[in-house]
Amino acid sequence: MSPSTSNGALQPPKKTIVAPLPNPSLQVTADHQLKQVEAPVYPPGPGEVLLHIKATGVCGSDIHFWKTGRIGSLVVEGDCILGHEASGVVLKCGEGVATLMPGDRVAVEPGVPCGQCFLCMDGRYNLCEDVQFAGVYPYHGTIQRFKIHPAKWCHKLPDNVTFSEGALLEPLSVVMHGIKSAGLSLGRGAVICGAGPIGLIALAAARASGAHPLVITDLEPRRLDFAQKFVPSCMTYQVDLSLDAKGNAKNIRKLFGMEEYFLPDTILECTGVESSVVTAAYTVRRGGIVMAIGVGRPIMNNLPFMHLSLAEISLKFINRYRDTWPGGLQCLGGKILDLKPLVTHIYPLEKALDALHTCSHLSNGSIKVQIVDDVDVVF
């Protein structure tokens, strides 16, 4: 592996710290392979902290980078440590760090924007084109024991929030940004497309927001069963592959009753699958919002443009999140949301490869797979 800078970018070799423990990491290669190798450890620079990563969730994007080598314009061109849903413990602080100290438990906000462009200056730092995002080539991610990260993007965990919950703050942030942008309404119906981790978090968050009634859709009956137990008040709909988008949309609408007023005015589309996006367009009521949260194909050719236009349906998008970690911490610390049941599989860091294989096959029955490192580290 080529050495990296303190923020993860590739650079010439530099002197490493001799740590009392090795630094195992899980890396994806440009030829769609995974490998577990030792990674170097670097001292924190000004404004940075050295973290012991305690928990990392496996995300669908990690699987995309492994299987296809890209997500849109983001391309794996060399070895890169995966992972971005993480929490850990501060081991060392670099010069000028005043907000954290060794021993602090933190959640890691993985995107480090440039701070200088007009989007950063406007507060929309999630749209920064020069963002250095953990686990996206060439910026190394969190499936490793030790990682350098700017202190500014590390958020202290309350005492009653576990490392596992701290690692769930990243997918929760995706949902929070989507819900805020969609504007769910108290007592108004909504549909969540997809009962994967993001869809299930969206279901729980929509319930906490007061939206009602709620319907969640999926192809997999086991995931719908999980959703029903996770949020008992929801209704479920198993997508019928023998029907087209209009046919499935008609069936989903029936769950809300026959009156137009009670049809869902918000759809949270969490799959990124084209047929699901089209179904969402035909499901939402006239004047409603379809919020695309899931990651999809670069080009979709079958969107019903004139239906969206004539019904004044807003098709909206999000890119990751911004300013969500403080609110997410309040949701978890204040017990507004309990996301712990989502973690169905846990692997030690040394078996991170197995974790990705488990996550990549629906037949394994996983919801959220996490990689944990329970060793004690003292520098």
Rank of each mutant, 00 (worst) to 15 (best):
Y321Q: 04
H177I: 03
C59H: 04
C154K: 09
G333A: 13
C154N: 12
T99R: 14
H361L: 13
V175A: 10
V215Y: 01
V18T: 13
T344S: 05
G272V: 05
S164D: 15
L353G: 15
R222A: 14
L353M: 15
I63M: 00
G60Y: 09
E165D: 15
G334S: 09
T283A: 04
G178F: 03
C270I: 05
G45P: 00
T266L: 11
E48Q: 03
E220F: 14
G194K: 03
H345G: 08
Y261D: 12
S363D: 11
S25R: 02
F379W: 12
R207W: 12
R320C: 10
D62M: 06
L34F: 01
G103I: 07
W66P: 07
D240W: 07
K368A: 12
I252T: 01
K147S: 11
A311D: 15
L34M: 06
V49I: 14
G365E: 04
P138V: 00
G103W: 05
K54R: 13
A107M: 10
P24A: 00
G83R: 02
V377Q: 01
P348R: 04
M101D: 13
V106R: 04
S233G: 09
Q238M: 10
S4N: 15
L91G: 02
I289F: 08
G123P: 07
E38T: 07
L241V: 10
T283W: 02
M306S: 12
P221L: 10
P113K: 01
A211K: 02
K316E: 11
V174L: 14
G115S: 08
V277S: 08
V28W: 03
L168K: 06
I198T: 06
A55V: 12
I267A: 00
G294F: 01
A281V: 09
I143Y: 06
Y347P: 10
G123T: 02
T162M: 09
M291N: 01
C120R: 02
G187T: 00
D130W: 14
I267V: 14
Q132F: 00
G288Q: 08
A195R: 02
D225W: 11
V175K: 08
F230W: 05
P264I: 00
P171N: 06
A195I: 02
L332S: 02
D265Y: 04
C120L: 10
R253C: 02
M300G: 11
I216N: 05
V41R: 01
D244L: 14
E259Y: 15
L186H: 10
I148T: 07
C117H: 05
T279W: 14
W325E: 07
Q116F: 09
T283G: 07
R322W: 13
N160W: 14
K15A: 14
G8R: 02
N160M: 11
W66C: 06
M121P: 14
V76N: 05
G47N: 01
L329V: 10
I289C: 14
P341D: 03
G96Q: 00
F256M: 03
E77D: 12
V136M: 09
P22W: 11
G60N: 04
C114Y: 07
E109R: 12
I216P: 06
K15C: 15
E312M: 01
A19E: 09
D338L: 00
E260W: 12
P221W: 03
W153F: 15
G123C: 05
A292F: 13
G69L: 08
G333V: 04
